[in-house]
Amino acid sequence: MRDAVIVDAVRTAVGKGKPGGALSGIHPVDLSAHVLKALAERTHLDPELVDDVVWGCVSQVGEQGFCVGRHAALGAGWPESVPGVTVDRQCGSSQQAVHFAAAGVISGQYDVVVAGGVESMSRVPMGAALSAFGRPMGSLVEKRYDNFPFNQGTGAEMIAEEFGLGREVLDQHALDSHARAARAQDEGRFKGQITPVAVTGPDGTAHVFDTDEGVRRGGTLEALSALKTPFKECGVVSAGNASQISDGSAALLITTSEIAARNGWTPIARVHTAVVAGTDPVTMLKGPIPATAKALRRSGLSIDDIGAFEINEAFASVSLAWQRATGADYDRLNPNGGAMALGHPLGGSGARLMTTLVHHMRDNGIRYGLQSMCEGGGMANATILELV
């Protein structure tokens, strides 16, 4: 029986998604091509073997339009015979890319496939496709859901209220995320997963970018409590306890155990269970809760069997609500920091989380890891990985 294993996973450091951010001068196709080339070099992969490049991207317009996955392969200098496809499952796009890649490998449609994603939010702003072409829901969806908010910040406020999450609790979660990320940087935990990128700064000087740009040190509850709550008057969600707008890309090499052995590759992890779930599209961000339950049910594992969790910190209320609903050990949740500290490059985030997860599992001998992330429209992917 065929399986799906992750041979290696690589990412860029995450840059601030604004003019002057470390990666803001790099076209998203070029950024994607960079991680493809790095992945091939690290694994001694002959690109001729690649059956497909399955690539996540959310804002598929402008520089990220016209199938960024295909152009990434061409930009990497890979043979023209290597196709590419671009996936949009909102913030879970590149996690879904891994699911599609794993399913293709297990079914025999692929032997060797690369999955990953990209988002350059400094060059293609979040919501760019909406502002260009109007509201995408259509009259029937808007009729079904009165006053459809299409505002994730509002959903995050609703979740905080539902789970009784106050401002101080959310701000402390944000401080923990930054502290964990800073500790991971100081201890060199990211070095094995980050491929350096040569960049040119706003002043014209060239340097190598290899450290996540959004991590803040020395924050305090007092400083965070002074930030405005833009989604609700006297609310609890602020810029300080929400994910950062970011640029970044990540890629994973996926094949079967047999093909890996044939090519001299030692896999890191096996895709044990992969599911997707839907939830209401108004609060829209609670999807990781039912997705996790579905993954555990199908896997036959319990929450206590999982040694590390990567739950995307779109907002502090999302990951904390998930933790309270599942009863997961808080110390195992985003042990190297999450999107509030490291950033959230939308279509690249699923692959970034998985890259961080598989390296953390290997470095610490953790048998099972689980990843999940909320997605616009009320969805979530959940993946359980097993260390090989």
Score class of each variant (00 low, 15 high):
residue 1 M to W: 03
residue 9 A to W: 15
residue 12 T to A: 08
residue 15 G to N: 02
residue 16 K to A: 02
residue 17 G to H: 07
residue 18 K to D: 10
residue 20 G to W: 00
residue 27 H to R: 13
residue 27 H to W: 01
residue 30 D to E: 09
residue 31 L to C: 09
residue 32 S to Q: 10
residue 33 A to G: 12
residue 34 H to K: 11
residue 42 R to T: 12
residue 44 H to D: 14
residue 47 P to I: 03
residue 49 L to Q: 02
residue 52 D to R: 01
residue 53 V to F: 12
residue 54 V to E: 08
residue 59 S to G: 13
residue 71 H to K: 05
residue 81 S to A: 02
residue 84 G to Y: 01
residue 91 C to N: 03
residue 92 G to T: 08
residue 94 S to V: 06
residue 95 Q to K: 07
residue 95 Q to L: 10
residue 96 Q to P: 04
residue 97 A to M: 00
residue 97 A to G: 09
residue 99 H to M: 06
residue 100 F to H: 13
residue 101 A to W: 13
residue 104 G to M: 00
residue 107 S to K: 09
residue 108 G to L: 12
residue 115 A to C: 00
residue 116 G to H: 13
residue 117 G to D: 00
residue 126 M to E: 01
residue 127 G to E: 05
residue 135 R to S: 10
residue 136 P to Q: 08
residue 140 L to Y: 11
residue 141 V to R: 04
residue 148 F to N: 15
residue 154 T to M: 11
residue 155 G to T: 02
residue 161 E to K: 09
residue 161 E to L: 14
residue 171 D to K: 03
residue 173 H to L: 14
residue 173 H to C: 11
residue 186 D to I: 08
residue 187 E to W: 15
residue 189 R to L: 11
residue 193 Q to A: 11
residue 202 P to I: 11
residue 202 P to G: 03
residue 203 D to I: 10
residue 205 T to V: 15
residue 223 A to I: 02
residue 226 A to T: 05
residue 227 L to K: 04
residue 227 L to F: 01
residue 229 T to P: 09
residue 230 P to S: 07
residue 240 G to P: 13
residue 241 N to T: 03
residue 243 S to G: 12
residue 248 G to L: 02
residue 249 S to M: 02
residue 252 L to I: 04
residue 257 S to D: 10
residue 260 A to N: 07
residue 261 A to R: 05
residue 262 R to H: 14
residue 265 W to S: 13
residue 266 T to Q: 00
residue 268 I to K: 03
residue 274 A to W: 12
residue 276 V to R: 12
residue 280 D to M: 01
residue 284 M to H: 08
residue 285 L to T: 02
residue 285 L to R: 10
residue 289 I to A: 13
residue 292 T to I: 09
residue 293 A to M: 08
residue 297 R to H: 11
residue 298 R to W: 13
residue 299 S to M: 14
residue 300 G to A: 14
residue 302 S to H: 06
residue 304 D to P: 09
residue 304 D to W: 04
residue 305 D to K: 06
residue 308 A to C: 12
residue 309 F to G: 00
residue 310 E to R: 04
residue 313 E to P: 00
residue 315 F to G: 04
residue 316 A to F: 10
residue 318 V to M: 07
residue 322 W to H: 07
residue 323 Q to F: 02
residue 323 Q to D: 00
residue 324 R to E: 04
residue 333 L to P: 02
residue 335 P to Q: 12
residue 336 N to F: 15
residue 336 N to V: 09
residue 338 G to Q: 09
residue 344 H to K: 11
residue 349 S to D: 09
residue 350 G to T: 05
residue 353 L to I: 05
residue 353 L to M: 06
residue 357 L to N: 10
residue 358 V to C: 01
residue 358 V to S: 06
residue 365 G to R: 09
residue 367 R to S: 03
residue 367 R to N: 01
residue 373 M to Y: 05
residue 375 E to T: 10
residue 377 G to C: 00
residue 382 A to E: 08
residue 384 I to P: 00
residue 384 I to D: 02
